[in-house]
Design a protein around this nucleic acid. Structure first.
Lengths: 263, 263
DNA sequence: CGCTTTAGTGAACACCGTTAGCAAACACTG
DNA sequence: CAGTGTTTGCTAACGGTGTTCACTAAAGCG
């Protein structure tokens, strides 16, 4: 139907035809502008007409590229998850491979930093789906979201095999919880023979704690009552890591044997 | 200017004049309809025109009662905080006054229950301010929000004076954190001579954990990967309460000496 | 060259928030 | 009672939104 059977100029080599290239480019432009409107005017400030206007086009023209405003939002959400995954992965990779402790610390801080540097994006990604149909198809973003989570799975798995922390009592995992945790682990790609449900429970619990602080900070609810939430995040981070048997270091510490980037 | 100096029929006794009464009534109707639209069509489904239409009025007419859509949203948000505060307070009051443990358990469960029974409302109250000006005046809701929090302050204070849990090391409270925690405690009405900052830290930490699970559940992010998040909330609740030295009981338990409501 | 596919436009429909001006209903005063 | 000022709600209008449809112009292909 919509499959383009034209433009097979050099399609043999996997090269895109001229048409496909320019198409890809305008789609990228659309998403870029929409993204900018998102950060500049908030989630409600993204509109097809405004994007089109800025491109020197009319709104209906965009329907050749995007099936509607919802699809556009979903598409840029997927891109943002990709970006976040990149940011976290980069932070992880910036630390020596063997230094699990600092890799975790750095990755988690990268998550928070990205979140507060991209508040509007975070709101769309992790907040309520205020603008979208509840039954919209959000599969485009799922792969990126999984990639984002994967970084943490890998690190957490290392803690697990190194037996850094004591697993909680199996008795604490009620049948209901057990079922849900298994579902989570399996559908998220965090299931392996050596991973017990208790470990999955610890993982989710830790994630919930940090997610909670970041939400609180990004959604800006405490601002009347508390100026800066970074200390709170650090405290929570410290607590979580300590529970996991991971060495915590305060933010400023560039510490020994590492390249000095004093800024 | 806008102060109504008319209608002083029986104003001496504090009774509202006929005009004020009908005005109050239509304002209430506006908010009620807006509220229904919120729960039925989500946050983006609230519009002045639709409300007016349903009332048999035109949109500009509503401007006699509400200064715009933002003010309307803020007003119903305040109402919702009031409702939530009532729900939590009622849950708290449904338990014998001396039974601190179960009062806490019940109040916190009431919070979650209210949240998942009122997803759209929760999104507006605790999610990102997607639709509002960041610098909008949200004072109307503040009092209600404080009232909501107050229930938990009271209960937490009892744990504190009963020395139910060990306070963390003072060393863990960095100067930055200390400053923020004091600001929080003071501006929230949770400061008293006998309350150390370490206690405030514990309080916020506990709150963050439960807020995190509830956000996750209401914002519906895990749904692809985990069907029901209640077991997760219960696990987190159990962990939090255990840390606080509070007796945890699984949900179904109506336990001895209490009225049996087996449904 | 002709033919097909695609990109983009303009007009239109149905919404939205908000402002301005105006007419009727109301409440109080002389 | 009539007179007067306030309150209420309307219509009209402006500018914004998403979306559909019919249509033209261009690009690509054989």
């Amino acid at each position: 139907m919509t499959k383009p059977q034209v433009a097979r100029g050099r399609a043999d080599q996997g090269t895109l035809s001229r048409r496909e290239r320019v198409r890809e480019a305008t789609l990228a432009e659309i998403k870029a502008i929409a993204r900018r409107h998102l950060v500049e005017h908030g989630p409600s400030g993204v509109s097809l007409r405004a994007v089109a206007r800025e491109m020197g086009m009319t709104a209906p023209g965009l329907y050749r590229y995007v099936s509607g405003i919802d699809a556009l939002l979903i598409a840029i959400t997927a891109d943002m998850f990709d970006e976040l995954a990149d940011a976290v992965a980069a932070a992880d990779a910036s630390v020596p491979e063997e230094d699990t402790d600092r890799r975790i610390l750095t990755s988690l801080r990268a998550f928070r930093t990205w979140a507060i540097d991209h508040r509007s994006e975070f709101a769309v990604m992790f907040g309520p789906r205020a603008r979208l149909d509840p039954n919209a198809d959000i599969t485009p973003g799922l792969a990126a979201a999984r990639r984002f989570a994967a970084t943490f799975y890998t690190l957490f798995d290392r803690l697990l095999v190194e037996r850094r922390f004591a697993l909680p009592d199996r008795a604490q995992v009620t049948p209901d919880l057990d079922r849900e945790l298994r579902s989570f682990a399996e559908r998220c790609g965090f299931s392996a023979p050596h991973i017990p449900v208790e470990a999955v429970m610890v993982l989710t619990s830790c994630w919930v704690r940090l997610y909670g602080v970041v939400c609180m900070e990004v959604f800006d609810h405490m601002s009347i009552v508390m100026g800066d939430l970074e200390p709170l995040f650090e405290a929570e981070l410290r607590a979580v890591l300590t529970d996991l048997g991971v060495r915590y270091e305060p933010p400023g510490d560039t510490s020994p044997s590492t390249i000095g980037t004093p800024d």
